[in-house]
Design a protein around this nucleic acid. Structure first.
Lengths: 243, 243
DNA sequence: ACCCACTGGGTACGCTGTACGCAAACGGCT
DNA sequence: AGCCGTTTGCGTACAGCGTACCCAGTGGGT
């Protein structure tokens, strides 16, 4: 395998890309060093020439994914970067929240394992995340809060998105060997379908047979409704902070 | 090992308790069937007489933990269970939210692995969780929303708590082999300490050296502040729903 | 021509979950 | 008492995991 065999060279990027593919398609716990090596037509131990550790690989995967789903910062790079309004491309703070929600949701549903990886500040909060935080802070600044307040709102929003995403993708994370039944089906679904697993408590009883179309189990809907309520809270807190 | 050897009998409860102990003390990924068996002075395969699967064991562990951290439902069992006010022991809806927040936070910080387990409706949403949902719905009913609205608020609150808890306990979940550095220390901490890892974006630059006492990295504080903002949103949505 | 750094491969170790079969003990029956 | 089906526990074995360690080949620099 010489240098002229350009495409065949084993590179760190190729390893990271293959790992991401496997984690997406086969699930996070199906990701093994041997499987990555097989896909690349290479011995398992060869990977360790380019990646020190499986943990380091996970960090590189997370970084790569973060770079693939950027917030639209820098789209007006020519303007003054310290100008909060210009930094978000003239969007209102509420529109910024929507962009962040859509982007993160897209990321988490396409790459479920990132929910776990992002939760650790050691794996997230690299340069890309700091830029996203900066962009969101620029948006929240329209509410008249100080930098700490804007950062707090961003982190609160992110935590909520992660919480909903965690529920949405949990089936992929704690994947059992034999999916003998619908893994997304829990006690609540059975209540809504009219077949409660046990004698339901009084208020739950009012929900029996309500059907799934009331939206209680639609994660994307729960996300949007929750973000809406959070934003109302943001506004109120900002109003109070302004005095 | 006869029946007279009462304490020595291998029981399902003993297995579940031992597993919970190990997961709490040594971390979730250090939990192995052999380790459980060793602690019980028993062969690994003996466990399978009482537990069909490791996944089934995880479900039993989750159920046990759920039972250990109940909401205070049923404390006035003599009253009419359909009476929403009585069901929550005369608490205001906001007090109910606080009880739920405190209880869940206590649960998640004491048993970090439950954050993962609870995220899947297959592992949570048993009878205990349905009772908790019922109790919270009784509380939210004070806002004048219907049952679906009360359930929606409960699930939204739970998602947010899980999101914050996920960040707080992530160090225990994606535990690396060699914790050569503080795993809870991320790029944001370095910014606040005044040692940013890279050239910080403009608004992040305003945070450099702000110190950790501004509360941005205090997870319990972030939880309470976020719950406060969510509750403001709950109130506004309820007001609108009432017309 | 020689050496050396770099890359990839192979073997091996200790760990995991668990399928399978066997031995001992128990409860209920005649 | 003697028997027998069922339960309980144990030991072996297998496939898969991350990765420590060492060897072979190849390219460039001297």
């Amino acid at each position: 395998m010489t240098d002229s065999d350009a495409g065949g060279r084993l590179t760190r990027d190729a390893i990271v890309s293959a790992a991401i593919d496997i984690a997406d398609v086969e699930g996070f716990d199906a990701l093994s060093m041997r499987k990555i090596a097989d896909r690349l037509g290479v011995g398992a131990m060869s990977l360790y020439r380019h990646v020190s550790d499986k943990d380091a690989l996970l960090m590189a995967m997370t970084e790569e994914i973060g770079a693939r789903f950027p917030y639209p910062y820098g789209e007006h790079a020519a303007d003054d970067p310290a100008d909060d309004r210009a930094a978000v491309g003239g969007r209102s703070w509420r529109e910024c929240v929507q962009v962040a929600t859509d982007t993160d949701w897209d990321l988490y549903t396409r790459h479920p394992w990132v929910v776990l990886a992002y939760s650790s500040p050691r794996h997230s909060m690299g340069a890309a995340s700091l830029h996203c935080l900066d962009w969101m802070m620029a948006g929240f600044s329209q509410l008249g809060v100080d930098r700490v307040g804007a950062a707090e709102m961003t982190l609160t929003l992110w935590s909520y998105i992660q919480g909903v995403a965690l529920t949405a993708v949990s089936a992929d994370l704690v994947r059992t060997t034999g999916p003998d039944q619908d893994p997304a089906r829990g006690g609540l679904d059975e209540v809504l379908d009219g077949t409660p697993p046990v004698e339901p408590p009084p208020r739950i009883a009012d929900l029996v047979g309500a059907g799934r179309d009331v939206g209680l189990t639609d994660m994307r809907r729960r996300l949007d409704r929750g973000v809406e309520m959070l934003c109302i809270g943001f506004e109120a807190v900002a109003r109070e902070a302004r005095g």
